[in-house]
């Protein structure tokens, strides 16, 4: 899984391998080790991408799925 922007700063890491078969299981696994990060990942404006496509709500994860948590995008320039 990947973290961007302020979420990566908060966690202190940007990418990590986590075993989870669904998005809910992934959130639960994170909450067990870092509850404040798990809360931030569910915060307002945070989007989730699975294999580089935005998803909404629950989804199952394939073995090598890439899950990215995207805080509100700032735009460039």
């Amino acid at each position: 899984m990947l973290l961007f922007g302020r979420l990566a700063d908060q966690a202190g890491w940007r990418d990590r391998v986590v075993e989870a078969s669904s998005l809910t299981a992934l959130r639960d696994a994170l909450a067990a080790v870092d509850p404040s990060l798990a809360e931030a990942l569910s915060g307002p404006g945070v989007q989730v991408a699975v294999d580089k496509a935005i998803v909404r709500g629950e989804t199952f994860l394939a073995a090598s799925a890439e899950v990215a948590f995207l805080p509100p995008m700032s735009g460039g320039w």
Binding site: D9, P72, S74
Partner: peptide, 23 residues
């Protein structure tokens, strides 16, 4: 579009530290 909606995350580094910027 690029200024407000493009998928980037922007951090301003100032003498007082770093700050994430939103549109």
């Amino acid at each position: 579009y690029l200024k407000s909606r493009a998928p980037f995350w922007k951090k301003e580094h100032s003498p007082g530290g770093g700050r994430w910027i939103e549109p």
